[in-house]
Computed example of a mutant assay.
Amino acid sequence: MNTAHKPRLSICDTTLRDGNHAVAHQLAHTDIRAYAKAAELAGADVVEVGHGNGLGASSIQVGLAALSDAEMLNAAKAELRRARLGVLSIPGFASVERHLKPALDCGADEVRVGAHCTEADVTRQQITMLRAMEVTVKGMLLMSHMASAEKLLEQAKLMQAYGAHAVILMDSAGAYTPADVHEKVSTLAENLDIEIGFHAHNNLGLSVMNSLTAIKAGATIIDVTARGFGAGAGNTPLELLAANLHVEEIGSEIQLFEALDAADLAEERFVKHVPTNDSITIASGIAGVFSGFAAPVRSASERFQVDPRKILLELGRRRVVAGQEDTIIEVAMSLAAGDQMQADPM
Score class of each variant (00 low, 15 high):
A4K: 10
C12G: 03
D13Y: 03
L16C: 00
R17P: 09
L27Y: 00
A28H: 12
H29L: 07
T30G: 02
A34D: 00
A38C: 06
A39R: 05
G43F: 11
V47L: 05
G52Q: 06
N53K: 11
G56D: 01
A57K: 02
A57S: 15
S58A: 07
Q61T: 12
L64A: 04
A65D: 04
L67N: 02
M72P: 05
L73C: 03
A76V: 03
A76G: 02
L85K: 06
V87T: 06
V87L: 01
I90Y: 04
F93Q: 07
V96C: 09
E97F: 05
H99L: 06
D105S: 08
A108H: 01
R112F: 03
H116Q: 12
R124P: 04
G139P: 05
M143D: 15
S144T: 11
A147F: 04
A147V: 09
A149D: 10
L152D: 05
L152W: 08
L153D: 04
E154G: 00
Q155I: 08
A161G: 01
A164P: 06
I168S: 08
S172E: 06
A173Y: 12
D180C: 14
V181W: 07
S186P: 05
T187W: 11
L188F: 02
L192I: 07
D193L: 00
E195A: 14
I196P: 01
I196W: 03
G197T: 06
A200E: 15
A200G: 15
H201T: 10
N202I: 12
N210Q: 14
N210H: 13
L212C: 10
A214K: 13
I215S: 07
K216E: 14
A217E: 08
A217Y: 03
A219T: 07
I221R: 13
V224L: 09
T225R: 02
G228H: 07
G234Y: 02
T236Q: 08
L240W: 10
L240K: 14
N244H: 15
N244G: 04
L245Y: 12
L245F: 11
I250L: 14
G251E: 15
E253W: 11
Q255H: 13
Q255S: 07
E258S: 13
A259P: 09
A266T: 03
E267F: 05
E267L: 02
F270M: 08
T276S: 14
I280W: 08
A283G: 12
S284E: 05
S284Y: 00
I286A: 08
A287N: 09
F290E: 03
F290R: 03
P296T: 10
A300F: 02
S301M: 10
V306D: 11
I311D: 11
I311M: 10
L312C: 08
E314D: 15
L315H: 10
L315I: 11
G316D: 14
V321W: 02
V321G: 01
D326G: 06
I328V: 13
I329R: 09
I329T: 15
E330W: 02
Q340F: 10
Q340R: 13
M341Q: 15
P345T: 09
P345N: 09
P345D: 09
M346S: 09
